[in-house]
């Protein structure tokens, strides 16, 4: 390791692409990014969180279904820019056999906010057939 930044990058590989990675039964990453030029970037490994717990204004605790995809920057061809139209194919659940679905990436929301060393958070939004 050259410096702390490289160590963090290596740790991210363990965190995001190790036991918590979304992979199929063959260990291949199940995330596919489709860039605005129509190019598919397949086999990306990363962690997908599907739900989070929140509280309503009435004080009720609820589970909100909002997938968040966390990947290493170095595993992407490039970082999606705000306003670009990117799509992402990923499993709809945590099981290796869960079906894949195509979502639209919300690029209006900053993917890292400039505060991270080496990972990106992406927010897929549902896309329906037009």
């Amino acid at each position: 390791m050259n410096n702390a930044r490289h160590m963090v990058e290596a740790d991210l590989a363990t965190l995001l692409e190790g036991d918590f990675a979304s992979v199929n039964t063959k260990g291949v990453g199940m995330i596919t990014l489709i860039d605005p030029d129509g190019l598919r970037h397949q086999g990306i490994k990363g962690r997908i969180d599907y739900d989070y717990v929140s509280m309503t204004s009435q004080g009720e605790t609820i589970a909100v279904h909002e997938p968040v995809v966390v990947v290493r920057k170095s595993s992407l061809p490039r970082v999606p820019k705000p306003g670009e139209r990117w799509f992402i194919q990923m499993p709809t659940g945590p099981q290796p056999t869960d079906p894949l679905y195509t979502f639209k990436l919300n690029t209006a929301r900053p993917v890292d906010g400039g505060e991270t060393i080496g990972f990106l958070k992406m927010y897929p939004k549902r896309a329906d057939q037009e």
């Binding site: 489709i34 030029d37 129509g38 190019l39 598919r40 799509f87 194919q89 195509t102 639209k104 939004k125 549902r126 896309a127 329906d128 057939q129 037009e130």
Partner: peptide, 19 residues
């Protein structure tokens, strides 16, 4: 939700131009 031609995006034979 957003809308897009999912048939094209999910078609493994679609060209990058079509996508």
């Amino acid at each position: 939700s957003a809308t897009v031609d999912l048939r094209t995006l999910n078609d493994p034979n679609a060209t990058s131009q079509q996508i």
